[in-house]
Structures are given as structure tokens and as C-alpha cells.
Amino acid sequence: MKSVISVEGLKKQFDNEEALKDISFEVGKGEIFGLLGPSGSGKTTTIKILTGELEPSGGLVEVLGYQHGAFKKSEYVRSLGILSDNSSLYERLTVKDNLALFRKLYNTEQSKVDQVLKDVGLEKHINKRVKDLSKGMKQRILLCKAVLHEPAVLFLDEPTSALDPVTTDSIHDMLLKIKARGTTIMLTTHNMDEATVLCDTVAFLNEGIIIDNGSPDALRQSYKTNDMHITYDDGRTKQISLSPENKVQLEAALFDTNVVNMKSDYPTLGEVFKKVTGKELV
């Protein structure tokens, strides 16, 4: 599969700080790629470079066949949708006015606006002023704004940060619909459940370096162990390796009424991240 996004040896230096040290990854057409990492790891910097907001200090960056020198070109800008953590709307204007502005700037038909509003379930709020909407509604309108021109690539920086679970689910549903239309999506998130549900591939970014990448399932598989973790009602824990010589111990634990929890060591993405970096994803 030909890559839509190709990053090789990307570096970014801010004065004395090296935000990105040497990162490489590829994203195929129609994939959802998640860049995961703690605050300050370089996620937003990477997105800003890919969207042409920042110049890289080194390395090769190519999106949709355009190299970073061409990221200011109008045709490139037109093929992107961007939802960043500080995207905002015109609060005094209505939802309709806000979307009408971007519909005209992208020279898109009104039917597309109607469709995206319907997709996020906000078609009844079109005449409301943005300042009267909830945070979750505003985020959904921002997503509408980012996709109403049907971009080939959608960049999302923390799209569901600080949103309630219902709004988060609604945004996930919409992203999966957008992916089904063939749009390539690159997102950054702290939310491991979000990455597991949405992403085909994820990369762990820590201190400007990609430590590991792969599909969420493959990463979890590669960091799992053969251990069984047992917790007793008095708080004691025990780790037993799943091997034939431990069969008796394991069977005893199964029938021990003092055992309150037994679980295999199949880590979540967050646990995998902690294993490889020693850091929590916050």
C-alpha cells in the first residue's frame, strides 16, 4: 500500500530544545494512525509540521505526494482537514454562519454541510449561536468544520480531550464513518481506549523519539508475558508463570476462596506504554 503520510528522520529544534529527535513512520490510505505520548513528547509539533504550520529542522516529510516545502500550496491546504486542541469557532455567530464561512472558503456545496451536521446529530442546532452550545457540541461543530470539504487527510490533535463519554463516542462514530469513506486520519491522544478502538496503527512518542509502533493488538501481544497475576483478599499479590510445572499452584488458586482476582498479563496500551517508557500517559 502506498503511503499517504511518510515521515523519515524528522527533527525539530526550538532554540535550545530538541522537540523531535529523529522520528520516522508511514501511514497508508484510509488508515487511522495514532501518535501516543505524554504532554511535551512532540505530538503537536509533529502535527504542526505535517500541516505546514511549522518548518522541520531536518528529515523528510511527505503527505499526499507533497513535500514540506509545498505545504503552503493552496491545493495541499484544500486536501487537509485540521482539528487542533486550540481550534475555535466564532462565538457570536450561529453554527450556520460559522460553517457557511468555511463552506465558501473551500467552495463546497451546502449539501455537504447538511450531511456532516446530520452525521454528528446537530442539524437541529444550526441556528443557535455558538456561545450557547455546550463544549461537546462545539467540538462536534469543529469536527464538521474540519471535514465538510471531504479532505483526503484529517489531522486531529487531542480530538476528545476533556469531553464526556457520550460526546466522545459520538465523535468516534463519526471518525469511523469518515475512515470508511477512505479518508486517512492521523490523531494524537492520551486516551488509550480511544487509540485501541480507533487506530489501525499507533506509535509511542516519548521525548521526541518513537519508541515502538504497530497495531494496538500486535503491541499488546508483543508485551504480554506468560504470567498470571493473583490478588488475595488480604491484599497480597502473587505472580505465577503459565507453565506445566505450575499447574498445581494455578489449580489451587482457581479454587482458593481467598483469591479475589486472577488475570493474565495481557497489557492495555497504557500499560505497554508504561512498560517501555516507565511513564504514565497523562
Binding site: T51, S84, S87, S88, L89, L105, Y106
Partner: peptide, 10 residues
């Protein structure tokens, strides 16, 4: 931060 949205548009 609305200027950024305009600059990121065509």
C-alpha cells in the same frame, strides 16, 4: 485562536 483556522484554510 480563530485566525489559525482561517490561515489553515485556503
Amino acid at each position: 485562536n480563530t485566525l489559525r483556522g482561517l490561515i489553515q484554510s485556503p
